[in-house]
């Protein structure tokens, strides 16, 4: 179990990097749109084509990298009224089963996301901006990456749950610990 703990601790840095990437993207998105509003009102034109960049680049970057961190924080909602009345061990076993199903689903999304990114690369997918074409296919690789990290997070939580009498449903490690 110690190696698992160590690996999980190391993985936390990866998740945290994802969080910072997504969070900073949202901050940039704010600045970007405000600048666009300003230039449109002062100069009458969307200078950067901010709508396309926001849509094709920033929104996906605000979401996929942070998936694993958000999941691990325990924010994803679920019903607990029945399971809370069960014995901890039974509750753990049910949780492991549910997370197992989730692991399969997100592994599938990782696989399909990878295919999507590859086909996007093959086609050199791009959007038109100011009369030219801007490729956006590189961003598609964040789809499988995000789902892969999420799958790994779920896998860790499953393994940790096996080692204790109660389900491990979220990361206890806080950002402050990583920060320090």
């Amino acid at each position: 179990m110690r190696t698992v703990d160590q690996a999980y601790r190391a993985f936390h840095y990866v998740k945290y990097a994802g969080l910072l990437l997504s969070g900073t993207t949202i901050f940039v998105m704010m600045a970007f749109i405000v600048i666009d509003v300003a230039t449109r009102n002062l100069m009458g034109s969307s200078v950067f084509g901010s709508y396309e960049i926001t849509q094709y680049f920033l929104m996906p970057l605000a979401f996929f990298p942070a998936l694993a961190y958000a999941y691990g924080s325990g924010i994803m909602p679920k019903l607990e009224m029945l399971t809370n009345r069960l014995k901890p061990v039974l509750r753990r076993n049910i949780a492991i089963l549910m997370m197992g199903i989730e692991l399969v689903l997100f592994s599938l999304l990782t696989f399909y996301g990878w295919q999507y990114a590859l086909s996007g690369t093959r086609e050199q997918l791009g959007f038109s901006m100011k009369g030219g074409i801007v490729p956006y296919y590189p961003i598609l690789y964040f789809i499988p990456l995000g789902f892969l990290l999420l799958s790994v997070e779920i896998l860790f939580l499953i393994i940790k749950s096996f080692g204790q009498k109660e389900p491990a449903l979220e990361t206890k490690l806080e950002t402050a610990e990583v920060d320090a």
Binding site: L19, L20, S22, G23, T24, I26, F27, A62, F63, A66, L67, Y69, A70, Y71, S73, I75, M76, P77, T175
Partner: peptide, 15 residues
């Protein structure tokens, strides 16, 4: 600020 924002955003978008 960004941690809370990202958590909530990701939750809503994933749903």
């Amino acid at each position: 600020s960004i941690t809370e924002t990202v958590k909530i955003t990701t939750m809503v978008l994933l749903i």
